[in-house]
Protein backbone atom coordinates (compact mmCIF):
# COMPACT_ATOMS: atom_id res chain seq x y z
CA UNK A 1 0.00 0.00 0.00
CA UNK A 2 1.36 3.40 -0.85
CA UNK A 3 1.64 5.89 1.99
CA UNK A 4 2.59 8.93 0.01
CA UNK A 5 1.55 9.51 -3.55
CA UNK A 6 2.86 12.61 -5.24
CA UNK A 7 1.68 13.18 -8.79
CA UNK A 8 2.71 15.93 -11.20
CA UNK A 9 3.88 18.21 -8.43
CA UNK A 10 4.93 21.61 -9.75
CA UNK A 11 6.08 24.61 -7.78
CA UNK A 12 6.74 28.03 -9.26
CA UNK A 13 8.37 30.94 -7.51
CA UNK A 14 7.36 33.77 -9.80
CA UNK A 15 9.00 32.88 -13.12
CA UNK A 16 11.23 30.23 -11.63
CA UNK A 17 10.05 26.65 -11.85
CA UNK A 18 11.60 25.09 -8.76
CA UNK A 19 9.81 21.76 -9.14
CA UNK A 20 8.68 20.40 -12.46
CA UNK A 21 6.28 17.47 -12.61
CA UNK A 22 7.61 15.41 -9.77
CA UNK A 23 6.10 11.95 -9.26
CA UNK A 24 7.09 10.01 -6.20
CA UNK A 25 5.43 7.12 -4.45
CA UNK A 26 6.48 5.84 -1.06
CA UNK A 27 5.16 2.47 0.05
CA UNK A 28 4.87 1.04 3.51
CA UNK A 29 8.17 0.11 5.16
CA UNK A 30 10.15 1.62 2.34
CA UNK A 31 13.20 3.84 2.58
CA UNK A 32 13.30 6.26 -0.31
CA UNK A 33 16.15 8.68 -0.88
CA UNK A 34 16.08 11.86 -2.89
CA UNK A 35 19.46 12.91 -4.22
CA UNK A 36 20.64 15.58 -6.54
CA UNK A 37 23.13 18.43 -6.79
CA UNK A 38 22.72 21.53 -4.61
CA UNK A 39 19.81 23.67 -5.69
CA UNK A 40 18.05 20.79 -7.42
CA UNK A 41 14.83 21.47 -5.46
CA UNK A 42 15.00 18.68 -2.90
CA UNK A 43 14.25 20.82 0.12
CA UNK A 44 11.61 22.71 -1.85
CA UNK A 45 9.97 19.35 -2.48
CA UNK A 46 10.01 18.63 1.27
CA UNK A 47 8.58 22.04 2.01
CA UNK A 48 5.78 21.43 -0.48
CA UNK A 49 4.70 18.13 1.00
CA UNK A 50 4.95 19.31 4.61
CA UNK A 51 2.79 22.37 4.02
CA UNK A 52 5.47 25.05 4.28
CA UNK A 53 4.76 25.98 0.65
CA UNK A 54 1.57 25.58 -1.30
CA UNK A 55 2.43 23.84 -4.58
CA UNK A 56 1.36 25.49 -7.83
CA UNK A 57 -0.19 22.31 -9.20
CA UNK A 58 -0.23 18.57 -8.70
CA UNK A 59 -1.53 16.28 -6.03
CA UNK A 60 -0.09 15.06 -2.76
CA UNK A 61 -2.07 12.17 -1.32
CA UNK A 62 -1.37 10.64 2.05
CA UNK A 63 -2.77 7.40 3.45
CA UNK A 64 -2.19 8.54 6.93
CA UNK A 65 -3.38 7.95 10.43
CA UNK A 66 -6.87 6.52 10.41
CA UNK A 67 -6.46 4.72 7.07
CA UNK A 68 -8.15 7.39 4.94
CA UNK A 69 -6.59 9.05 1.94
CA UNK A 70 -6.10 12.78 2.32
CA UNK A 71 -5.08 15.35 -0.24
CA UNK A 72 -2.71 17.60 1.65
CA UNK A 73 -1.85 20.35 -0.83
CA UNK A 74 -1.98 23.70 0.88
CA UNK A 75 -2.75 22.35 4.31
CA UNK A 76 -0.98 24.08 7.16
CA UNK A 77 2.18 22.33 8.40
CA UNK A 78 0.55 21.36 11.69
CA UNK A 79 -2.35 19.71 9.84
CA UNK A 80 0.08 17.78 7.66
CA UNK A 81 1.81 16.56 10.80
CA UNK A 82 -1.54 15.46 12.17
CA UNK A 83 -2.10 13.43 8.99
CA UNK A 84 1.05 11.47 9.76
CA UNK A 85 3.99 13.18 8.06
CA UNK A 86 6.81 14.28 10.34
CA UNK A 87 9.99 15.99 9.28
CA UNK A 88 13.41 17.10 10.42
CA UNK A 89 15.27 20.10 9.09
CA UNK A 90 18.44 20.53 7.09
CA UNK A 91 19.73 23.13 9.51
CA UNK A 92 18.77 21.72 12.88
CA UNK A 93 15.70 23.44 14.32
CA UNK A 94 15.35 22.31 17.89
CA UNK A 95 13.91 24.37 20.73
CA UNK A 96 17.31 25.31 22.17
CA UNK A 97 16.25 26.55 25.60
CA UNK A 98 14.00 23.62 26.40
CA UNK A 99 15.21 20.37 27.85
CA UNK A 100 15.78 17.35 25.65
CA UNK A 101 12.73 15.65 27.12
CA UNK A 102 10.54 18.70 26.59
CA UNK A 103 11.61 18.88 22.97
CA UNK A 104 10.20 15.41 22.45
CA UNK A 105 7.14 16.23 24.55
CA UNK A 106 6.35 19.04 22.10
CA UNK A 107 6.08 16.40 19.40
CA UNK A 108 3.27 14.80 21.37
CA UNK A 109 1.25 18.02 21.19
CA UNK A 110 -0.90 17.08 18.24
CA UNK A 111 -1.73 13.66 19.70
CA UNK A 112 -2.88 15.01 23.07
CA UNK A 113 -5.64 17.41 23.95
CA UNK A 114 -5.35 19.05 27.39
CA UNK A 115 -6.89 22.53 27.19
CA UNK A 116 -6.20 25.70 29.16
CA UNK A 117 -8.95 24.76 31.60
CA UNK A 118 -7.58 21.25 31.93
CA UNK A 119 -4.10 22.59 32.54
CA UNK A 120 -5.26 24.90 35.32
CA UNK A 121 -7.46 22.43 37.17
CA UNK A 122 -5.20 19.47 36.40
CA UNK A 123 -7.86 16.81 36.68
CA UNK A 124 -7.05 13.12 36.70
CA UNK A 125 -7.39 12.97 32.93
CA UNK A 126 -4.77 15.67 32.41
CA UNK A 127 -2.44 14.13 34.97
CA UNK A 128 -2.72 10.79 33.24
CA UNK A 129 -2.10 12.38 29.87
CA UNK A 130 0.97 14.22 31.17
CA UNK A 131 2.26 11.01 32.64
CA UNK A 132 1.87 9.21 29.35
CA UNK A 133 3.55 12.06 27.46
CA UNK A 134 6.57 11.96 29.77
CA UNK A 135 6.86 8.19 29.67
CA UNK A 136 6.50 7.80 25.92
CA UNK A 137 8.87 10.71 25.28
CA UNK A 138 11.47 9.12 27.52
CA UNK A 139 10.96 5.85 25.72
CA UNK A 140 11.68 7.57 22.40
CA UNK A 141 14.82 9.16 23.78
CA UNK A 142 15.97 5.75 24.89
CA UNK A 143 15.42 4.45 21.37
CA UNK A 144 17.63 7.10 19.80
CA UNK A 145 20.22 6.71 22.56
CA UNK A 146 19.78 10.00 24.39
CA UNK A 147 18.58 8.60 27.71
CA UNK A 148 21.55 10.10 29.54
CA UNK A 149 20.85 13.70 28.62
CA UNK A 150 17.10 13.81 29.24
CA UNK A 151 17.18 16.92 31.41
CA UNK A 152 19.92 18.79 29.60
CA UNK A 153 19.06 21.79 27.51
CA UNK A 154 18.82 20.92 23.84
CA UNK A 155 21.37 23.57 22.90
CA UNK A 156 24.02 21.87 25.04
CA UNK A 157 23.92 18.63 23.06
CA UNK A 158 26.65 17.64 20.65
CA UNK A 159 25.85 18.05 16.97
CA UNK A 160 25.18 14.38 16.26
CA UNK A 161 22.99 14.15 19.35
CA UNK A 162 20.99 17.15 18.21
CA UNK A 163 20.31 15.37 14.94
CA UNK A 164 19.09 12.32 16.80
CA UNK A 165 16.95 14.46 19.08
CA UNK A 166 15.31 15.97 16.04
CA UNK A 167 14.46 12.48 14.84
CA UNK A 168 13.06 11.54 18.26
CA UNK A 169 10.96 14.67 18.26
CA UNK A 170 9.61 13.87 14.82
CA UNK A 171 8.83 10.32 15.92
CA UNK A 172 6.86 11.68 18.87
CA UNK A 173 4.23 12.98 16.46
CA UNK A 174 3.46 9.33 15.66
CA UNK A 175 4.01 9.59 11.92
CA UNK A 176 3.47 6.98 9.22
CA UNK A 177 6.16 8.59 7.10
CA UNK A 178 9.28 10.28 8.38
CA UNK A 179 10.95 12.91 6.23
CA UNK A 180 14.62 13.47 6.97
CA UNK A 181 16.35 16.44 5.38
CA UNK A 182 20.08 15.67 5.19
CA UNK A 183 20.24 13.76 8.47
CA UNK A 184 23.94 12.92 8.06
CA UNK A 185 25.12 16.44 7.17
CA UNK A 186 28.12 17.38 9.27
CA UNK A 187 28.48 13.97 10.88
CA UNK A 188 31.68 11.98 11.14
CA UNK A 189 31.82 8.43 9.71
CA UNK A 190 31.13 6.87 13.09
CA UNK A 191 28.06 9.01 13.69
CA UNK A 192 26.87 8.34 10.16
CA UNK A 193 27.06 4.63 10.78
CA UNK A 194 25.01 5.00 13.95
CA UNK A 195 22.49 7.03 12.02
CA UNK A 196 22.30 4.35 9.35
CA UNK A 197 21.47 1.76 12.01
CA UNK A 198 18.98 4.07 13.67
CA UNK A 199 17.08 4.69 10.44
CA UNK A 200 16.86 0.99 9.65
CA UNK A 201 15.73 0.31 13.20
CA UNK A 202 13.00 2.94 12.98
CA UNK A 203 11.77 1.33 9.79
CA UNK A 204 11.84 -2.20 11.17
CA UNK A 205 10.63 -1.63 14.73
CA UNK A 206 8.18 1.21 14.31
CA UNK A 207 6.97 0.33 10.82
CA UNK A 208 7.54 3.84 9.64
CA UNK A 209 8.43 4.54 6.04
CA UNK A 210 11.26 6.98 5.46
CA UNK A 211 11.86 9.58 2.79
CA UNK A 212 15.23 11.23 3.05
CA UNK A 213 17.37 13.80 1.31
CA UNK A 214 21.04 12.99 1.58
CA UNK A 215 24.37 13.81 0.00
CA UNK A 216 26.34 10.99 1.63
CA UNK A 217 26.27 8.49 -1.21
CA UNK A 218 27.57 5.62 0.87
CA UNK A 219 24.70 6.04 3.28
CA UNK A 220 22.16 6.47 0.51
CA UNK A 221 23.27 3.41 -1.40
CA UNK A 222 23.37 1.13 1.62
CA UNK A 223 20.11 2.35 3.07
CA UNK A 224 17.56 3.00 0.40
CA UNK A 225 15.15 0.70 -1.36
CA UNK A 226 14.54 3.31 -4.00
CA UNK A 227 16.34 6.45 -5.08
CA UNK A 228 14.92 9.47 -6.85
CA UNK A 229 17.37 11.79 -8.57
CA UNK A 230 16.54 15.43 -9.13
CA UNK A 231 18.32 18.11 -11.09
CA UNK A 232 17.14 21.67 -11.80
CA UNK A 233 13.72 20.86 -10.40
CA UNK A 234 13.22 17.91 -12.71
CA UNK A 235 13.08 14.28 -11.77
CA UNK A 236 15.78 12.75 -13.94
CA UNK A 237 15.83 9.17 -12.68
CA UNK A 238 14.21 6.77 -10.31
CA UNK A 239 15.14 3.24 -9.34
CA UNK A 240 17.08 0.91 -7.10
CA UNK A 241 20.60 1.91 -5.97
CA UNK A 242 22.28 -0.25 -8.66
CA UNK A 243 20.10 1.16 -11.41
CA UNK A 244 20.87 4.68 -10.33
CA UNK A 245 24.61 4.05 -10.11
CA UNK A 246 24.65 3.00 -13.75
CA UNK A 247 22.27 5.61 -15.09
CA UNK A 248 24.06 7.90 -17.61
CA UNK A 249 21.68 10.82 -16.88
CA UNK A 250 22.63 10.74 -13.23
CA UNK A 251 26.33 10.57 -13.91
CA UNK A 252 25.97 13.52 -16.25
CA UNK A 253 24.15 15.56 -13.61
CA UNK A 254 26.77 14.86 -11.00
CA UNK A 255 30.00 14.73 -12.97
CA UNK A 256 29.31 16.61 -16.20
CA UNK A 257 28.94 15.72 -19.90
CA UNK A 258 32.37 14.17 -20.40
CA UNK A 259 31.79 11.31 -18.06
CA UNK A 260 28.41 10.21 -19.37
Amino acid sequence: MSLLNVTNLTMDFGGLRALDNINITVHENEIVAIIGPNGAGKTTFFNCITGMYTPTSGDILVNGTGGKTHRINGLKPNKVTEKGLARTFQNIRLFPDMTVLENVMIGKHCRTKASVIGAVFRGSETVQEEYEIVESSYELLRKVGLENSVNNLAKNLAYGEQRRLEIARALATEPVLLLLDEPAAGMNPHETKELDELIVRIRDEENIAILLIEHDMKLVMSLSDKIVVMDYGKQIAQGTPTEIQNNPEVIKAYLGEDFA
Binding site: T50, M52, K76, P77, N78, T81, E82, A86, R87, F89, R93, L94, F95, P96, D97, M98, I106, G107, H109, C110, R111, R169, A170, A172, T173
Partner: peptide
Protein backbone atom coordinates in the same frame (compact mmCIF):
# COMPACT_ATOMS: atom_id res chain seq x y z
CA UNK B 1 11.98 29.18 20.44
CA UNK B 2 11.30 28.36 16.81
CA UNK B 3 8.09 29.18 15.04
CA UNK B 4 8.69 27.01 11.98
CA UNK B 5 9.75 23.93 13.89
CA UNK B 6 6.87 24.47 16.27
CA UNK B 7 4.39 24.34 13.43
CA UNK B 8 6.10 21.37 11.83
CA UNK B 9 5.68 19.51 15.12
CA UNK B 10 1.93 19.81 14.83
CA UNK B 11 1.23 22.86 16.96
CA UNK B 12 -1.48 25.15 15.66
CA UNK B 13 0.34 28.46 15.56
Amino acid sequence: EDEIACQAMGIDK
